[in-house]
Design a protein around this nucleic acid. Structure first.
Lengths: 225, 225
DNA sequence: TGTACATCAGTGAACGCGCGTTCACTGATGTAC
DNA sequence: TGTACATCAGTGAACGCGCGTTCACTGATGTAC
């Protein structure tokens, strides 16, 4: 690898790092390529050798965050026996990552950035890694007949949608199981966002980890029973 | 009421309306008092006769949105018999409002606006109206012994926090009930945000209302038994 | 009812700052013969 | 191994635009006597 490739790789990494910092300080909507060039000690125009536009930088940061979150979740799930404990481990890992990187969580699951649409080609795969893993764990429970069997009324339209999801994620589970997974997913995203976005205020809960664990335990009961 | 008070009231309402539109088009982070003055046909400085700063305008919009959401939810709950159906009605009303006003939902429950902190004196009361109503409905179920009694392990710390919440909302229900309410709340916020923030993509679900109803039905089951 | 004065709404210029993106350019690194 | 040429990284000026906030001011509305 020549000197050019090396410095290029280093600068690209620096750009992502500076971008992360900007997300934390000014937010996605005020992300500025000029500011990043400044921080790199470059002329503002030089940044265009590395990033083709502001939106392109946002996509970079989006994929970066999706991947790091998914890696964290995968790492936490690895080696945990039993689908139930594995989902719990994944949920906790997701929350932990979000608490450590609130601005990046906001980029992934918070308000959309006005004027920006993520290019599906680049973002769909990294963006579905976590839910895919959760579904896999739930499918394990379903195949062991450990997942709640009480049926839920699902409209034909919704059943058709579920069919497509089943194909996309090669998920082996009934509509009822899928519906429960959706509920767990909504609870997970909601619980993390409420905490990370500061909805609880600073003085409502002393131990927000305990709040989260309790919430997820209840959500998982609905899956298992 | 003199002519001055009348025009002032009209202009104040116009400012809020234009602010809402800006939330929808450029988002809270790019909210511009200059643009609003422009749209009103005023000099940019004249806006300061009505709003003392940009942050002040944000607070105005925040309270406006909290109140309208709460009014909508209250209206939908009115006259609905049975705590369970009432919670369902409230949840649907909240979703409906969020779908109609995605940018305002984002202001309330989405990513925090960097550099802005809502003044508690103005926002806490309107911001807790919806959850207060849900808790009241759940308390009704608890007093009728219709709410799930299976206990949940709650740490002493969390129990103490729950005690404070019980006092603040004059809520009559055990720790288990409170924990379940928290779960329902997280599910509600998560389900709405996932839909409104576009996480499902445009082609995953044909009937997102059905998805929401199914999710909430499951969440309520966990409350009820 | 009329007049004097106080309050208020709105103006326009200014301060100092930021942004994304393009363009013609220099000088360094890499490559093919 | 040396040379000629192509590629690439970075510069600096420029375009055209935006922002929040302050300030001294004019002219209209409201109020007290």
């Amino acid at each position: 690898m020549g000197i050019r490739q090396e410095t290029r790789a280093r600068i690209e990494a620096d750009i992502v790092e500076l971008g992360r910092r900007q997300l934390a300080t000014v937010g996605a909507a005020s992300l500025s390529v000029r500011a990043i060039a400044r921080d790199l000690g470059m002329a503002s125009s030089a940044i265009y050798r590395y990033v083709s536009s502001r939106d392109d930088l946002l996509t970079l940061l989006l994929v970066d965050a999706y991947d790091e979150l998914a890696d964290t979740v995968t790492g936490a799930a690895m080696g945990v026996d039993g689908w139930r404990d594995r989902i719990t481990a994944m949920a906790r890992a997701a929350r932990g990552w979000a608490v450590r990187h609130p601005a990046r969580w906001a980029l992934l699951y918070g308000s959309p950035v006005p004027g920006y649409t993520a290019p599906p080609a680049a973002t769909v795969v990294p963006g579905t890694r976590v839910i895919a893993q959760m579904l896999a764990a739930a499918a394990e429970g379903a195949s062991a007949a450990e997942v709640g069997t009480a049926d839920i009324a699902v409209s034909p339209t919704l059943a058709a949608d579920f069919g497509r999801i089943r194909a996309e994620f090669t998920f082996a589970g009934s509509d009822s199981v899928l519906a429960r997974c959706l509920g767990v997913w909504a609870t997970l995203i909601g619980a993390i966002s409420l905490e990370v976005f500061g909805q609880y205020g600073s003085d409502t809960f002393t131990d927000s980890e305990a709040v989260f664990d309790t919430t997820m335990e209840l959500a998982l009961r609905s899956l298992a029973g």
